[in-house]
């Protein structure tokens, strides 16, 4: 006889899949349809007009997509590198140094984006980075570094470094250990941190708006503008563009790492 928890588990999986697929399906329909009013199951008319706004002449979504992608990639890379070093340093620290380090990493994660943006705004203006893409990058990097530092703090707290010790006594200097042992052994974690940092940047609205002063146009800002303006088809297209790249990146990463062996000593 099938137990109740087993039945629940069986029932929950299709529900989970449905809850993930339904919004995407609705967005897909909305991006190619118009005149879609309740209680109609499908849009009244179909057209690809909004998709031409991605690549066509005078398109707004395309450049915004590129700006978002560039910012996300740069933020992910910077946050990955910073997080790895900061996380390992905090993990190696003891006592109050560790508490302060972990607290400093947690602060940009815990602070609401608007509060963070307000705090960063004055600093960026003072540094001459107001309303520039570099300023937006700096604003994105701050919370992203918080996430990746906490991520690596967890990893380095349980990682004992036995392989690195072995490598050193076998004759590897610090740089060789990093290049030949740590990075190859941790490339799964490094890729995950890159993706984490990129996703933090990818979805930013408040920080982009404040640091960019409205002149740096990213995909989330375009989508919000379309929503406010009632251009539902363009908003749906932009939303799909917001969803697809992270999903694709995640899928590609899983594919790339499918043969990576995790070997405990």
């Amino acid at each position: 006889m099938t137990s109740v928890p087993a039945m629940l588990r069986r029932g929950l999986l299709p529900l989970l899949l449905l809850s993930a697929a339904m919004p995407l399906a609705i967005l897909g329909l909305a991006s190619i349809g118009s005149d879609w009013f309740f209680p109609a199951l499908l849009p009244g008319t179909f057209s690809l007009a909004s998709w031409r706004n991605v690549v066509g002449t005078g398109a707004l979504l395309g450049p915004a997509l590129l700006a978002s992608a560039a910012l996300a990639l740069a933020t992910g890379l910077a946050a990955m590198v910073f997080g790895a070093f900061a996380g390992s340093a905090i993990a190696a620290a003891t006592g109050w140094r560790r508490v302060i380090g972990a607290g400093a990493a947690f602060l940009p994660v815990a602070a609401p984006p608007v509060a963070l943006a307000t705090g960063l705004h004055a600093t960026l203006l003072g540094a001459g980075l107001g309303s520039s893409i570099v300023g937006v990058f700096v604003a994105h990097v701050v919370p992203a570094c918080g996430y990746t530092t906490l991520y690596f703090l967890g990893i380095f707290t349980v990682r004992e470094g036995g392989h690195e010790d072995a490598a050193r006594t076998l004759g590897a200097g610090r740089f060789d250990v990093l290049r030949r042992v740590t990075i190859p052994m941790m490339h799964r974690e490094l890729l995950e941190a890159l993706l984490l940092g990129a996703i933090v940047s990818w979805g930013q609205v408040a920080l982009t708006l404040v640091a960019g002063g409205g002149s740096v146009r990213t995909l989330p800002l375009e989508v919000i503008d379309y929503l406010v303006a009632g251009q539902d088809q363009l908003a749906a297209t932009g939303s799909l563009l917001l969803v697809i790249p992270p999903l694709a990146a995640f899928g590609l990463m899983r594919l790339a790492l499918r043969n990576v062996e995790l070997v405990l000593p």
Partner: peptide
Amino acid sequence: PESRGAVYLHQTPMLFP
């Protein structure tokens, strides 16, 4: 450690995976 000429073998062999 890298210039001592003394190799340390951990209790569990730390082979590079």
